[in-house]
């Protein structure tokens, strides 16, 4: 059993269907997003992504899209804040 599955079991989410999106922030240097529908706007300081349910605003400095394909997005740069919308 993976760590994530263990966490799901602990918080009682195992009976729910798989989440439509997942966001992982690694320190303040990178963010990994699954289930990305679209990058709405992006600049060096802000990236707005649209997910299957809602979206995310990532603020920071020197932000860029490290890898973007088939609903997966890796954002690199100095991430100062993220906001769920």
């Amino acid at each position: 059993m993976s760590f994530l599955e263990s966490v799901k079991e602990i918080i009682g989410l195992e009976q729910f269907p798989a989440p439509v999106f997942r966001a992982t922030i690694i320190g303040d240097v990178a963010g990994f997003f699954e289930g990305v529908v679209d990058v709405q706007t992006w600049s060096d300081e802000q990236i707005v992504i649209r997910l299957k349910k809602g979206g995310f605003i990532i603020n920071g400095k020197n932000l860029y899209l490290k890898k973007y394909c088939a609903g997966d997005l890796v954002v690199c740069g100095k991430i100062t804040s993220t906001q769920r919308i």
Binding site: Y64, L65, K67, Y68, C69, A70
Partner: peptide, 10 residues
Amino acid sequence: GGLTLYNVKK
């Protein structure tokens, strides 16, 4: 279009 984009920078 199915492309994998890398290092997309402004």
